[in-house]
Amino acid sequence: MHLTRRQFAIMAFALTVRAGQSAAASEDKAVFWQASLADRSINIFGYERINAALVSDIVRDGERISDQAMSVYTDIGPNAPHLKYSTNLKQVPPVLPDLPPTDAEDLRRIVSAAAGAPVDRLPGYVVSLLLMGEGQHPWAPSVEAVIMDHVRSSGKQISPLISDTDLMSIWSPPDSFTLEAVGAHQITYLLEKRRQLGPIGGYMETLYEQRRVSEITQLREEILKAGVVNPLGSLAGPQFKALLLKQVLKIEAMQNFLLLPLAILLGNNGLLELMKTSGFQITTLA
């Protein structure tokens, strides 16, 4: 099974603001931040997998902020190597037989059209990905891709912070035991969340649309606590974040712009908190 770093940067969405006007930023409602240390300033964009046309205000803010930068960075390059799962998901037992009848009926109705395979053959891990992505709109061209194209059109280079060698040295996908642990309990949990919130992918899009980032983080942490596996594996873990911090500390230009997945930035162990502990002052921009 192949995946790219971008393919599983899961969830989010759009906010309508009058042309030329940014959304008001607050601690809980922002997707752009400024990190300051001595004479260095790093403006940071936390992106989600979302169609740029749905978040035109965020695109405008990103283009405006990127225009001020001397140097622009992202976590990995666009041609980073494919990341492989060694686990044969076909060997993981299907989850449907273990679900209560009501959940099984709901799952058949929800997943049948989207799975590309009979739902009674799908393991819990695959079902969890389908439920987490349900309700999302087609995400190409994505918001970060459009902002990056704007950066390149201005003649600036976008430099990856993580080399391909370092990326492969820390890549570790969820193992067989972890994937098999996503079973009936986790799927029942996600189905109940769906009953409360509607399709989870669409709900997360709405939160991002409104820049309600604290609610995105809280829901993601709750989902992980319930045992739903993060498909990014080690690329959402402390080793990757520590490596990013190490590279961020090496940035020497005075005005910088950094584009990173929102999930890497936020939370108690997110990059923004790590930067605070290293002396950066973090403020919200938009």
Rank of each mutant, 00 (worst) to 15 (best):
Q239H: 12
P261Y: 01
G77D: 10
M11I: 08
H150E: 09
R18T: 14
S71W: 04
S169D: 04
T178A: 14
F240Q: 01
R109C: 08
L131K: 02
I162G: 03
P97S: 04
A19N: 10
T74C: 13
N88T: 09
A184K: 05
A236E: 09
V213K: 10
V72W: 03
E27H: 07
N43Q: 10
E222Q: 11
A114H: 12
P100H: 05
W139S: 15
D166V: 06
S169F: 02
R152T: 15
P81T: 00
A184C: 04
S153T: 14
Q21P: 06
P78I: 13
A181I: 07
K225Q: 15
S66T: 03
Y203L: 01
E105S: 11
L207H: 00
G270P: 07
L262A: 12
G201H: 01
L190P: 02
H185C: 11
P123R: 03
E215P: 03
D28A: 15
P93Q: 05
A253G: 05
F8E: 09
N269V: 12
S163K: 11
Y73E: 12
P100G: 04
Y125K: 01
Q255M: 07
A38G: 11
R220C: 02
T74S: 15
Q136F: 01
S112T: 15
A23S: 11
G233P: 00
S128M: 00
I110W: 07
T178C: 08
V151N: 02
